[in-house]
Nucleic acid binder design. Structure first.
Lengths: 158, 158
DNA sequence: CTAGGTTGGTTGAACGCTCAATCAGAGCCT
DNA sequence: AGGCTCTGATTGAGCGTTCAACCAACCTAG
């Protein structure tokens, strides 16, 4: 017996449009950043998170938690960012297992240089092609998906 | 002068919810397939495309075009799929540069084995968490994004 | 027919991510 | 104090993707 609830024609159409659009979008943003600023979108996200933190500093695990990265992924990424001089590691004095990641001035400058191009891309490919109603709906849809994934609703800015 | 049209608070909220949800979703589907069927989502897509083609056969470039893969990416992927015996390459008699990718019986079986889990995941994490109105809207939104990316509207099934 | 460009496809190096293994420090519990 | 577990983080191997370089076969203009 086959208990699978297969997708209807209509559902397939929605699914394919969705997944294609989303992969295309991410790909577009990733390429734009890589091409214009020599960083993948992932690293941009890390720089943003650090730039918004007090003292531009975050515990590794907090930084990982903010964007749902695995410890390993973050560790590799920060190693690379350290190598290009955008981030520094500092050991945590109160818990000697812990590490801080600190955004350097060079890192902040790189972020400032990358931001306009990235934001413009996001605006052009996402916000400009949707109506205000669609955008509002997209926000609700995203929150519903996040809830379904077990992520807590994005916390209000402290 | 800074001509960048930055995102408003509200827009940032939507953007972050959207990108987090979407990355979480893709990640979820990818892990599910990798874990339960030992294939990344990309390969699943390739198998699906082949399974729907006449004679389960597609020119490499057509296969790449269908899902917007680069030639290189597809070439590497098919090499891997050939290695595990799910796809075979055949040279094209009329154009000796060309290659056909053919889904093998083993490949079809692997696809059949993987499909229920994948479809179930898609239903649970996407279709089940949205209302019918949201789904309809998501379809429209996706099409608008695709158009913005310069992709032709998904063509009606042949 | 042939030279130059175009097209279909492959290759290899570099890089980012995942997974599993590892390690050291911290927090118990007795 | 000693042992156990848990936690924060790193490491290395393996894999998939990208980019640029490449090779052939096709095509077309002269």
């Amino acid at each position: 017996m086959d208990r699978t609830r297969w997708l209807s024609e209509r559902e397939q159409e929605i699914w394919r449009a969705f997944i294609t659009a989303v992969e295309g979008l991410i790909d577009h943003f990733d390429r734009q950043l890589q091409h214009d600023s020599s960083m993948p979108y992932t690293y941009y996200e890390i720089l943003v998170a650090l730039s918004e933190a007090p003292d531009r500093t975050l515990r590794m695990s907090d930084l990982a938690g903010v964007r749902g990265f695995s410890r390993s992924r973050l560790s590799h990424a920060v190693a690379r960012l350290e190598q290009v001089g955008w981030v520094e590691r500092r050991t945590c004095p109160t818990d000697r297992r812990g590490s801080y990641a600190v955004l350097t001035d060079a890192g902040f400058a790189a972020l400032e240089a990358a931001a306009p191009g990235h934001v413009t891309a996001v605006r052009e490919q996402l916000f400009d092609v949707l109506t205000p109603e669609q955008l509002a709906e997209l926000g609700e849809i995203s929150k519903a998906i996040l809830k379904g994934l077990g992520c807590p609703d994005s916390p209000p800015r402290h």
